[in-house]
Computed example of a mutant assay.
Amino acid sequence: MADVARVAGVSAQTVSRVVNDSPRVDPATRERVEHAMSELGYLPHRAARALRTGRSHTIGVVVATLATVGNSRMLEAVSTAAAARGYALMVVSVTDRAGVADAFARLRAQGADGAVVVNEATALAAGAAPDGAFALVAVDCPGSVPFPTVQSDHAGGAAAATRHLLSRGHHTAWHVAGPASSFAAAERERGWRDALSQAGAPAPPLERGDWTAASGHAAGTRLATRDDVTAVFAANDQMALGLVRALADAGRRVPEDVAVAGFDDVADAADYRPPLTTVRQDFDALGDAAVTALIGALDGAAPTRTVIPARLVPRASA
């Protein structure tokens, strides 16, 4: 750092500000310092910085599974947001509450500054939160917790999808829900019920899946036998895909006989047959909000609850 300061003709403190992306450096000086860093091949030493600042600029991501689209998309979004802020990432997978406590201990032992706990893992983390300087942010967290939370507006998105189905002239909309243990699934079910109630429409018996296309197909096979099923909202796009195939297997056309809507707007949703009406989660915004909240927590900010809007994307299936 002293060598960079000498070549750039600035103080070591100015070099430190550039390295730490401080706004207190004018553009011309920043450019001169960055040129000197490049010329000298200077790279910040993460371990040395950690000793000096008390931070490793490494964060953990705690997940229950990466098999679901939502979890893998969240991991990608958090990784992108962390990298943009100069943070490295460590991923830990857990299956129970003891595993969450162990994950926090391992992350702290490896020098992580904090962790983003994703989706299904948040229910396990609520009662196993560490104390001290280790910061936490939970994505899709049930209940009240003493750390920041980030979530999509699952209920609002589900209500929009349900209202869209009703607006097409259907008497009601059936629902293929996600797992009972899932916060996102519960919120989407709540949005579906609220929209039906506000429209004065009856709430049919619930079908429940496990986020997979196979579970959507199983639910669709049962629903296809009922003539009164003319519209279905599936809690994610994979289950909607299985549902559409089951309806086709039974000779029922989408959307002519049964309108179908999903949730997530996965990359292939527009290429389903027919293209799927769905609700888009903004995973990039969720990841950015989670990392921003975690850095804020490290800086002593009060816990916040951030809700990211979810937007209906109408297509040919409903």
Results as ranks from 00 to 15, higher is better:
162 T>P: 08
89 L>W: 01
135 A>N: 07
145 V>N: 02
138 A>L: 11
100 V>D: 06
114 G>D: 13
104 F>E: 09
161 A>N: 04
158 A>H: 06
104 F>L: 15
155 A>N: 09
64 A>Y: 10
121 A>E: 05
109 A>K: 03
67 A>M: 12
158 A>Y: 06
118 V>S: 01
161 A>I: 05
155 A>G: 09
163 R>M: 07
113 D>R: 07
154 H>I: 00
146 P>R: 03
77 A>M: 09
153 D>G: 15
82 A>F: 04
82 A>E: 07
147 F>H: 14
96 D>K: 03
153 D>E: 14
99 G>Y: 00
65 T>Y: 02
133 A>P: 15
118 V>G: 01
74 M>Y: 07
158 A>G: 07
66 L>H: 09
85 R>T: 02
87 Y>S: 00
120 E>K: 12
157 G>C: 09
74 M>K: 10
128 A>D: 10
104 F>G: 08
131 D>S: 15
130 P>N: 09
65 T>K: 14
122 T>V: 13
158 A>W: 05
144 S>R: 15
100 V>I: 14
90 M>Q: 11
157 G>P: 10
94 V>P: 04
154 H>S: 07
65 T>W: 06
150 V>T: 09
100 V>C: 08
122 T>W: 10
93 S>T: 13
87 Y>E: 03
99 G>Q: 00
109 A>M: 05
143 G>D: 11
102 D>H: 12
130 P>Y: 07
89 L>E: 01
100 V>Y: 04
76 E>M: 14
124 L>T: 12
138 A>P: 00
111 G>Y: 11
149 T>E: 11
134 F>Q: 01
